[in-house]
Each structure stands twice: as C-alpha cells, then as structure tokens.
Amino acid sequence: MNVQFKKGVLNLCVLVLLDKQDRYGYELVQKISDQISISEGSVYPLLRRLTKEGYFTTYLQESTEGPPRKYYKLTDTGREYLHKQLDEWRNFTDGVNTLIEEGVQND
C-alpha cells in the first residue's frame, strides 16, 4: 500500500486496539504488524506523541515472565478522538468502496 497512506492509519489502529483494553508496547506493535506491514520502529514515536497529547496515560505493571511492562491506557480525550477518527475513516472508506464498485461494474 501507498506509504503516505499508512501513517494516518497507524494512528487509528493504535487507538482502536486500546479502546477495549490496556496494552503494552510490544503487544500493540505485534497486533498491528500481524495485519499490515509496518515499520515497527515507527510505532514507539507515535505512542510517545499520542501520550504527550493527552490521549493515553501509561503505567508500569509486573509481568509473570519478564521485566515490568509499560501499559498504555486510553483517556477520555483519547476515546473522543478515536470516535472522531473512526467516523472519518468510515466515511472515507465508504466513499472509496462505492467508487470501486462503480468502477468494477463499468468494466
């Protein structure tokens, strides 16, 4: 997929993954890269930015198998932002899908 495209999408992916539960960085990265090819290094700068903008808070939690993990939690502001982004995404994809279907029918 077009590179320009992905960055905005990455934002949305991270927000959506944190909607239902808190997750730690590695987990987030793996979840996303299971579905789409991303540069895993670009997720951390993104997490930092969204945290600084007040969309996430972080906390440390011990894990059974390794070192303590930094968990990311969506704030109320973050949830609001997520829903706005999600609406925009749906509008956008609906529009593109309609165009694609029309295009396919004309062929």
Binding site: Y24, G25, Y26, E27, G41, S42, E65
Partner: peptide
C-alpha cells in the same frame, strides 16, 4: 521503552537481529 521491546521480543523467541530488522 526500547529495552522493554527487546526483552518482550526475546520472550517471543526472536533473535536480536530479527528484532532490530523489524524496527527499521
């Protein structure tokens, strides 16, 4: 954060080379 990422990657059975390669 990076250190934690490496630790978790290793727990996942990845080598250091694999992890650095995936990080760009």
């Amino acid at each position: 954060d990076l250190e934690e990422y490496f630790e978790n990657g290793k727990l996942d059975g990845k080598t250091e080379e694999q992890i650095t390669a995936s990080l760009d």
